[in-house]
Amino acid sequence: MLIKFFRNGKGAGAGPVGYLVADKVLAYNDNRDLIRDADGQPMTVTREPLPEVLRGNPDRTEALIDASRHQWTYRAGVISFAATDAPTEEQQAEVMDGFEHLAFAGLDPT
């Protein structure tokens, strides 16, 4: 299992939230270079598996980011498992519960 936070983000919530739930995203090679077609246009790939929202509400998250008056409007992170980890749904829920307890300490969950 890997838990990682990325640098602070700027701007509207449509960018980060849209990326997280998008079925198609820009295609990159193993060096993280954008792949372009013969005309120089960026290529896209369909995610496999497709994203699935397990907790939270993307529209609400986007609205919260948009409501921020700060220069840095959001902080993104990821909880990921290797295919060999094969956590059960109960184990995944336990990890998400612990993460939310730590990341949102002192905040009302509603």
Results as ranks from 00 to 15, higher is better:
69 R>G: 13
39 D>Q: 01
57 N>V: 06
68 S>F: 03
90 E>S: 15
99 F>I: 02
98 G>D: 12
71 Q>D: 07
104 F>R: 14
78 V>C: 01
91 Q>R: 12
106 G>H: 04
105 A>K: 14
86 A>C: 01
41 Q>H: 07
81 F>R: 07
58 P>M: 06
92 Q>S: 10
41 Q>K: 10
99 F>L: 13
40 G>L: 03
85 D>E: 00
42 P>N: 08
96 M>G: 06
102 L>Q: 01
89 E>C: 12
64 L>D: 00
80 S>A: 11
52 E>R: 05
102 L>W: 07
91 Q>L: 12
104 F>T: 01
42 P>M: 02
60 R>E: 12
98 G>L: 13
65 I>D: 09
47 R>A: 08
88 T>I: 11
66 D>W: 04
85 D>I: 05
94 E>I: 15
57 N>R: 09
71 Q>M: 09
108 D>I: 10
82 A>F: 09
100 E>H: 06
102 L>N: 04
51 P>C: 01
99 F>R: 09
62 E>S: 11
82 A>Q: 09
87 P>C: 10
104 F>N: 12
62 E>A: 11
57 N>S: 03
61 T>C: 11
70 H>K: 15
68 S>M: 11
74 Y>C: 12
84 T>F: 13
96 M>Q: 09
99 F>M: 12
71 Q>Y: 12
103 A>M: 10
83 A>L: 10
50 L>W: 09
75 R>A: 10
103 A>G: 09
51 P>T: 05
66 D>M: 06
100 E>W: 09
101 H>S: 13
104 F>P: 00
96 M>S: 01
82 A>G: 10
53 V>K: 00
56 G>H: 04
52 E>Y: 04
102 L>D: 01
62 E>F: 03
77 G>C: 11
68 S>W: 03
67 A>G: 00
86 A>N: 08
59 D>T: 02
49 P>Q: 02
107 L>F: 00
99 F>P: 12
67 A>T: 08
53 V>E: 04
66 D>N: 13
104 F>M: 11
64 L>C: 04
108 D>Y: 05
53 V>F: 00
104 F>D: 07
109 P>R: 13
90 E>F: 14
90 E>R: 15
75 R>M: 02
48 E>D: 15
95 V>A: 14
39 D>Y: 03
86 A>W: 00
106 G>Q: 06
97 D>C: 15
101 H>T: 14
65 I>E: 07
95 V>T: 15
71 Q>G: 13
84 T>Y: 12
46 T>R: 11
88 T>H: 03
99 F>N: 05
85 D>C: 06
87 P>A: 09
58 P>Q: 02
54 L>S: 03
54 L>G: 09
71 Q>K: 15
79 I>V: 00
72 W>F: 14
65 I>L: 07
66 D>C: 00
91 Q>I: 12
107 L>E: 08
102 L>E: 10
57 N>H: 05
55 R>W: 11
55 R>Q: 07
82 A>V: 03
43 M>N: 05
89 E>A: 14
81 F>I: 07
73 T>P: 01
85 D>V: 04
92 Q>C: 13
69 R>C: 10
